[in-house]
Write a protein that binds this DNA or RNA. Structure first.
Lengths: 252, 252
DNA sequence: GCAAGTAGTTGCATAATAAGCAACAACTAG
DNA sequence: CTAGTTGTTGCTTATTATGCAACTACTTGC
């Protein structure tokens, strides 16, 4: 099937602005290899619906709040977000940490919901962020839902090291995934950021496919063995309940 | 300036899906008054970037998670969200309720951030939702940032009553706004939903314009006069601090 | 303060694409 | 099993998107 080139270009503009924050018409024209008047008109269409906005008169452009309206409609309709919400909140309250829900999207973990305990240390909102798969608990759970061949395809290329603890050898990651599949959850310590740890478990659909990952994360100094045991058990229970609400049946 | 018709159509498709949840190619073609093959190709462009997805093979279409990636980039770059975040969290902890941030968007309050105290009763995520101005504390704060003529223009038509307490007379709303401007905050009880109350205060930019509204909301039974006093004072203090971080200077 | 350069905008002509049509495959309903 | 509907796709052409040139507005350097 065919796409529509001018729509493709408009969407590329949105991606450029998402990646770079803000850009001028001439800069975007250079990146798309089209004339700046073309970009100006494409941006006009996007601006009419608040998908982009201009910093000031004749200034650079950035993403606008119209995107958030569409996003609100999207999460409101994501079954897994809806079914998980109340469980995420009780889990956050029970553990005193941050609970996240992530789905696989274009070779990364896309965070789609977040609930923080009020006592949680961090205030970063991960929703909408695309986070590397190999260095996070959510990422490893999502990878564990794939075959080893699929994993190797997704993790092609050199895996970046974010800390001295990041596992960057694909073979070692694949070996870890066997353990994830066996245990039904994974604990990751200091791989994405020093001082940040998390435990994650899979959320399955009616067919048993891993469609999301739910995690509890917090500062490493609070991730004692006792907390990991308690949070892990509670997390697995919650993720199972979300899966059940989505139609999954554990026949074992 | 001109827009690009095919991009306009593609964005209309996104809006239809945001409003209706899911729709088929033929349905969308009817609404846009174009041929279904046109819709099929426009959807192809949107699907290639995960902005829409198909429920199952040859089924209806709905918004996809690609929107969330753009949304994450948008909130990450909204200055007011960034500056407010830590204050929102401390306010949620201090009051034990839910704190929201909303901006004006197309005649409604668009919720752009939310922090819940773990003890908060509700689990509804308002981010991305467009909420009526006349029936909410955030809405009334955003209206109070306009002139009376602008208010009357925005509130054209019959105002829906959501509960028996909803103020639906435009004149009465306008009169309330004078009070909001004087007091610097507003309390709204049971107007959007029975049992839901909130207090809100304005966030200003460097020019003093009201660019967002910050609120504390919770169940009416917890919104005692004492809580309103305490939360109101704390909220006004936080909203002022966010305004200062954005460059506003209160010279009084 | 002025000149030169750059960025974004817009009218117009035309090159290129988007769109409609027809036909098809796949699915649903009776 | 048949008829009807939906979504897809090859092809042609009607229509639009695009580039160009010229313009306004702004920035930078002297």
């Amino acid at each position: 099937m065919g796409t529509v080139q001018s729509v493709d270009r408009a969407l590329q503009i949105l991606e450029i602005l998402a990646r770079d924050g803000e850009r001028g018409v001439t800069e975007i024209a250079g990146q798309l290899d089209v004339h700046k008047s073309t970009v100006s008109r494409l941006i006009d269409s996007l601006a009419e619906r608040d998908l982009v906005e201009q910093n000031e008169s004749r200034g650079k452009y950035r993403l606008g709040v119209g995107i958030l309206r569409l996003a609100g409609a999207t999460t409101a309709r994501l079954d897994v977000v809806q079914e998980a919400r109340s469980l995420s909140r009780s889990l956050a309250a029970a553990t005193g940490e941050t609970v996240n829900l992530a789905v696989l999207s274009e070779g990364a973990a896309l965070y789609v919901d977040q609930v923080e305990a009020t006592s949680a240390v961090q205030s970063h909102n991960w929703v909408g962020q695309r986070i590397p798969l190999h260095a996070t608990s959510n990422g490893k759970v999502l990878l564990a839902g794939m075959s080893d061949d699929e994993v190797r395809a997704v993790l092609a290329g050199e895996l970046p090291a974010y800390t001295t603890r990041t596992v960057t050898d694909v073979g070692e990651v694949v070996a870890q995934l066997a353990g994830v599949r066996h245990d039904g959850y994974v604990v990751v310590v200091d791989e994405l950021e020093h001082g940040l740890s998390a435990v994650a478990a899979p959320v399955r659909n009616i067919h048993g496919d891993v469609i999301a990952s739910m995690s509890v994360s917090g500062p490493t100094f609070r991730f004692t063995a006792e907390l990991v045991d308690r949070a892990g058990a509670e997390l697995v229970r919650c993720a199972l309940e979300v899966s059940r609400r989505l139609g999954w049946r554990d026949l074992t």
